[in-house]
Design a protein around this nucleic acid. Structure first.
Lengths: 268, 268
DNA sequence: GATTCATAACGGTGTCCAGTGTTAAAAACT
DNA sequence: AGTTTTTAACACTGGACACCGTTATGAATC
C-alpha cells in the first residue's frame, strides 16, 4: 500500500517530497535533487521556483536552503495542506453543534474552512466570516445567508483584519463562534501573530457560545500572544491524535472537551 | 476567468445568440432553435437550462419565453456582458484621475471593475470596495492595499450591502470615489434597487471627490430611486456614444463633464 | 575569460475535461 | 391510453493545458 491518501497531480507530490527533504536537511543542491528524483535539472529548478513562490525555501546559486519556519507557517496555502485528516475530523464534530437557523461565526483558519464546507447541508443558516476563502465558498451556497466582515486585506492569511473588522464584528451577535489558534500553552489559546488576536477576541465577544478547534499538533506548540483563556470557550474540540497525558491535562483546563476520532479515509 | 475579447469558447457564444433571439422575439420553441443553430435538441435544452440559471429566460413546456428585463438587468453576469467597449473607454478615462498614493473607493458596478483592472499599474494605491469580484481581483495585486467593505452578501450583485456595510464606509475617508448608477433622469443619478442606494450615498459622503461613471445607454433610461443629484459629483464621465443633445443637456447639469472616446478594439 | 549555474524558449506528450450526440427513461400534456 | 417534451445516463471527441526534456542564451562566480 503506497500512497494512501490523495495523490492528485504529478508534480505537486514531488514538490512536497522536495520540501520535506529541504526542511529536514536544511539545504541541498539542485543536482542532488535531480539525481534523487530521477528528473532533469530543469524540472528541479521549476519545482524550486514554485516552492519559493510559496515561501517555503530560498533559492541561491548552487542550491536551496530552508526558510525559517515562522515565515511560512502562517501562509494559507501552506496551512491548507497540513493535517488534512485531523481538520476534517474536528470539522465533522464541530458541524454537529450547528443547527438550522443559527448564525455562526468562522475565523480565518483552515479548520473553519473545513467546517464551512459542511454547512450547506444544514441550511438555512447565517455565516459570518472574515476569511476570503470561506467567503467565496459560501457565496456559492444558495441556502446560506452570508455576512462578510470587511477590513484590511492580509495576503498571507487571505483574510480581513484591523479596526474596521473588529468594529464590524462588535455590531453583530452570533449564536456560535468557531475559532482556531496556532497553539495552546499554559491554559491559554495563543497565536503567533499580533494583528490577528483582536479579531479573534472580538469574535468570541460577539457570540453566545465560543468553540475552539484544534488539531493535536497545537498542543505541543507555543506562540507568543495570548488570545484567551481556555475557560473562555464553551467547548474545545481536538482530534484523537494527541498524547493521552496531553489530553488529560487539556481536559482539566477546559469546560467541555470533545475528542474527535479520525474519519475513514474517504475518497473525496 | 474573464475573457475580454468577446468571442469566447463554443457554447457561451451560441447561448448569447440564443438569448438575443429570445429577447427579440419574446418566445420560441426548442425545435426552432435546434434547427436555427444546427445542433441537437439536447444541446438546446442544456443551453436553455444554463440561461435559466442565469435568470435570463423562463423554460416551459414547448419552448421558452423571455424574462421581464427588470429581473435580470441587475445580475452581474449579465451586466458583465453588455456595453463592454463603452465601459472600457470610461474606465480608461477614469484611471487618469487616479494618482499613486491615493485611496480610491469603488462601488459594485462592472464599470468600476473595468477601472480596477487598470489600477495595478498605478501602485502604490489603496482600494476600498464592497464588490466581491473586485475584491478577488485586487487581492492578487501585490502593490495595492485592499480594504474590503463587509456586509450582507447579495448574490445577484455579488457584493456586500446593508447597515454593516454603510457603517464600515462611514468610518473611512477616501480621496476619490467612483460610482455608477443604472440611469440618469431629471438631474439625478438613479438606481432601480432600493437597498443599493444607501451604500452608494455613504461612499460619496466618505470621499473627498466623487466621480460618476456612465455608459451612454444610462442617459435614456429611468430608474425609481434617486441616489444623488448630478451636482453632487465632482466629475461625470460618459462614453462618446450618446446623442449630442443628451450630452448638451448633461453638460448643463454637471459640474464637470468628460466624454470618453471609444478605444481601439484591442485584443486583450 | 572560462566555467558553472540559472533561465528562457521551443516542442513533444499525455491527461483531463468541456461540449456534444445518442439512446433510454421519466414526466407532462391530450 | 398515446404522444410529445424533458431529463437522465453514457460514450465519444477535440482541444487545451500541464508537465517535462532538450537546447540555447544569459548571468554569476572564479
Amino acid at each position: 500500500m503506497i500512497d494512501g491518501g490523495g495523490t492528485r497531480p504529478g508534480p505537486a507530490r514531488r514538490q512536497e517530497a522536495i520540501a520535506e527533504q529541504i526542511l529536514a536537511r536544511g539545504d541541498i543542491t539542485a543536482g542532488e535533487l535531480a539525481e534523487l528524483f530521477q528528473v532533469s535539472l530543469m524540472t528541479i529548478h521549476r519545482d524550486l521556483s514554485a516552492l519559493e513562490r510559496q515561501g517555503l525555501v530560498r533559492k541561491l546559486r548552487g542550491g536551496v536552503t530552508a526558510q525559517p519556519s515562522s515565515v511560512f507557517e502562517s501562509d494559507v496555502s501552506f496551512r491548507e495542506r497540513s493535517m488534512r485528516a485531523e481538520k476534517e475530523a474536528v470539522a465533522a464534530r464541530a458541524a454537529e453543534l450547528v443547527e438550522p437557523g443559527m448564525a455562526v461565526m468562522l475565523d480565518d483558519s483552515t479548520t473553519s474552512l473545513a467546517l464551512a464546507r459542511r454547512l450547506e447541508a444544514l441550511a438555512p443558516l447565517t455565516v459570518v466570516t472574515n476569511f476570503l476563502t470561506t467567503i467565496e465558498l459560501v457565496a456559492g451556497m444558495p441556502g446560506i445567508r452570508l455576512i462578510a466582515l470587511g477590513g484590511d486585506y492580509d495576503a498571507p492569511h487571505n483574510s480581513f483584519l484591523g479596526v474596521s473588522c473588529t468594529d464590524a464584528i462588535a455590531a453583530l451577535q452570533a449564536d456560535l463562534c468557531f475559532v482556531s489558534t496556532s497553539a495552546v500553552t499554559g491554559g491559554h489559546a495563543c497565536h503567533q501573530e499580533q494583528h490577528i488576536v483582536p479579531v479573534k477576541r472580538a469574535m468570541l465577544a460577539s457570540a453566545t457560545r465560543g468553540v475552539l478547534l484544534l488539531d493535536h499538533t497545537k498542543l505541543t506548540r507555543t506562540a507568543l500572544y495570548r488570545v484567551a483563556r481556555l475557560e473562555t470557550f464553551d467547548r474545545v474540540i481536538v482530534d484523537a491524535g494527541a498524547a493521552p497525558e496531553a489530553l488529560r491535562e487539556l481536559d482539566q483546563l477546559t469546560r467541555s472537551l470533545d475528542v474527535a476520532a479520525l474519519l475513514p479515509p474517504e475518497a473525496s
